[in-house]
Amino acid sequence: MKRLQISDHIILLAGVFFMVTPVVLAFLTSTHDAVTIYRTGLQYSIGDQGLSAYGTVLTRAGGFTKEVNGMVMLKNSLILGFGFAIGKIVISMLAAYAIVYFRFPMASFCFWVIFCTLLLPLEVRILPSYEIVQKLGMVNTYSGLIVPLIASATGTFFFRQFFLSVPDELLEAARIDGAGPWKFFIDILVPISKTMIAAIFIIMFVYGWNQYLWPTLITTDESFFTLVRGIKQILQVWVGAQIPDYDQAMALAILAMLPPVVIVVVFQSWFIKGLVESDK
């Protein structure tokens, strides 16, 4: 038994090594200056430069781009993450509430229309989506960035499933207590969905924050760049540079992953519950 346990730990530690090392290396490297990195390769210790690359990335416009610094990108990432998560939760809770708790003629038609959005990821309809957003004049706007991403119905299905698992008697008791549709939603359903809302918020925030392709297309004005979108900019500077700013690139990578990683780790149990129960 004991020997088995040791081999289990070795396998797990190997897995942890594979998952953690790349990011640790990225962080350590970001604390050295670009020339040192270029000469001696990736670094395995904390360097003299400390966290100054982060300061540079956050405050100095023109590190990679000409108009925008890391703070602005951080702000845009937060807007995208929060905007997407909140928008999606509000819209999908309302829709799921209608589908589960109301009897109306078009119910199953509406349900299938929303359902079919699960069939096609944004990536396969990217070109026409871009053209439509362009036609609507929403390029380089926050709404153009956020709203089309909400079109997929994952959140609606999540809440629909949750609402279906709420005991019927709760609505019955509330009706006997004189609660109408709006009162029931606000007084009962939203409060009892709190943990579910938190779980889906984490997943959606991470999803929104990590968007890459869509922001790449929709934001050409640098003042709308997100941190993840900024990576594309690094690459364009990188190609053709003599000594790429490895340190700043890694600092940006760490900055871009830090907020979602912190949220996922801190709210781990909610996040896992949300992920496993929402299926997507």
Partner: peptide, 19 residues
């Protein structure tokens, strides 16, 4: 330690990868 990479954006993974 094994699950936190979930939160890393694919392009960030790519960036660390090319490094």
């Amino acid at each position: 330690l094994l699950m936190w990479v979930y939160a890393v954006a694919p392009p960030v993974a790519g960036l660390i990868g090319i490094l």
